[in-house]
Deep mutational scan, measured.
Amino acid sequence: MADQLTEEQIAEFKEAFSLFDKDGDGTITTKELGTVMRSLGQNPTEAELQDMINEVDADGNGTIDFPEFLTMMARKMKDTDSEEEIREAFRVFDKDGNGYISAAELRHVMTNLGEKLTDEEVDEMIREADIDGDGQVNYEEFVQMMTAK
């Protein structure tokens, strides 16, 4: 299944994987998964984290390695993001709930994920998604960005 991913997608997933893999040992533990999910405003229980890991832990060693992570991402993409997942993601970014993602809100979430971005990089990300040019990202623009192939 992971063989249907483009090189660009694999590179993006590698970057995402390293955000989860806090200690850089090449595997994601339940603790690391929990840290990232909490930084995104989720509050999973230990059991939920274990279930999430077990779902993709092909070799049964209790952690997720990069090939397992790729399989999980490929699977998720095949079920292409349901509207509800996209709306949920939008809410994570839209901290003040005004229906727009500002540069400050984007920077806040990315920083929580451990991504240190310059102001230019954040502005560039907003510009790429900002179709109507108002300097922020509304829900429609967010959907376009998330579903762009």
Rank of each mutant, 00 (worst) to 15 (best):
A2D: 14
D3Y: 06
L5H: 02
L5S: 14
T6G: 06
T6D: 04
E8S: 09
A11H: 01
A11W: 07
E12K: 10
E12Q: 12
K14G: 00
E15H: 10
A16N: 00
S18E: 04
F20S: 10
K22N: 13
K22C: 12
G24K: 12
G24T: 09
D25N: 12
G26F: 08
T27R: 11
I28A: 03
I28W: 04
T30P: 08
E32R: 01
E32N: 09
E32G: 12
L33T: 13
V36W: 02
M37Q: 09
G41N: 02
G41C: 08
G41K: 05
Q42T: 04
Q42E: 05
N43W: 04
A47N: 05
I53C: 14
N54S: 09
E55P: 15
V56F: 03
V56M: 10
D57H: 08
D57F: 06
T63S: 06
D65S: 13
D65A: 10
F66D: 01
E68P: 04
F69S: 07
L70G: 09
R75A: 10
R75N: 01
R75K: 12
K76W: 14
K76T: 08
K78E: 12
D79A: 13
D81H: 00
E84Q: 08
E84K: 09
E85R: 13
R87Q: 08
R87H: 10
R87D: 00
E88L: 02
A89R: 00
A89V: 09
R91P: 05
F93Y: 10
F93T: 14
K95Q: 13
D96L: 02
D96N: 13
G99H: 05
Y100I: 07
A103T: 12
A103L: 00
A104E: 01
H108K: 06
H108R: 12
H108S: 11
V109Y: 04
L113Y: 04
L113W: 02
G114D: 03
L117N: 02
D119A: 15
E120K: 08
E121D: 12
D123A: 08
E124F: 06
M125G: 07
I126F: 09
I126S: 13
A129C: 02
A129G: 11
I131W: 14
D132E: 08
D134S: 03
G135A: 11
G135M: 03
G135E: 10
Q136S: 05
N138G: 07
Y139Q: 01
F142E: 08
F142S: 00
V143S: 03
V143H: 04
M146Q: 09
T147N: 14
